[in-house]
């Protein structure tokens, strides 16, 4: 018996990931807090340890208005213009 696959297809299109720098020395690291409890704590500590280990220049944090709402285009643009790499979060 043949049936039609009930999942159909996905509209996801392949994009290319940004090229990574070979080191984080001197760069600014962006932290994007998803506003879940303690996400900022984890991000801040990872950023701090990362900076100590890699010689990053600075860490700056941005936020989302809520965990179930995406970051605003203005915040994303600011991150893109002011930082070289970014960390974000998804969990409870």
């Amino acid at each position: 018996m043949q049936i039609i696959d009930p999942t159909g297809s996905s509209a996801a299109t392949a994009k290319t990931l940004a090229k990574r720098p070979s080191s984080l020395e001197g760069v600014t690291i962006a932290l994007l807090d998803n506003s879940k409890p303690n996400a900022a704590v984890l991000l801040a500590r990872v950023g701090e340890l990362l900076a100590a280990r890699s010689g990053a220049h600075a860490i700056r944090a941005w936020g989302k208005p809520g965990s179930s709402i995406g970051a605003s285009p203005a915040v994303l643009e600011e991150i893109a213009s002011e930082a070289r790499v970014a960390l974000t979060a998804s969990a409870d």
Partner: peptide
């Protein structure tokens, strides 16, 4: 899991275990 609803110090301690992987992912 989890990071929510636990003391901040416990969350911060979890950061130690992943720094190398994060650094690798960024570089």
């Amino acid at each position: 899991h989890p990071i929510g609803g636990i003391p901040a110090a416990t969350v911060a301690a979890k950061a130690e275990s992943i720094v190398d992987r994060v650094l690798r992912g960024l570089t």
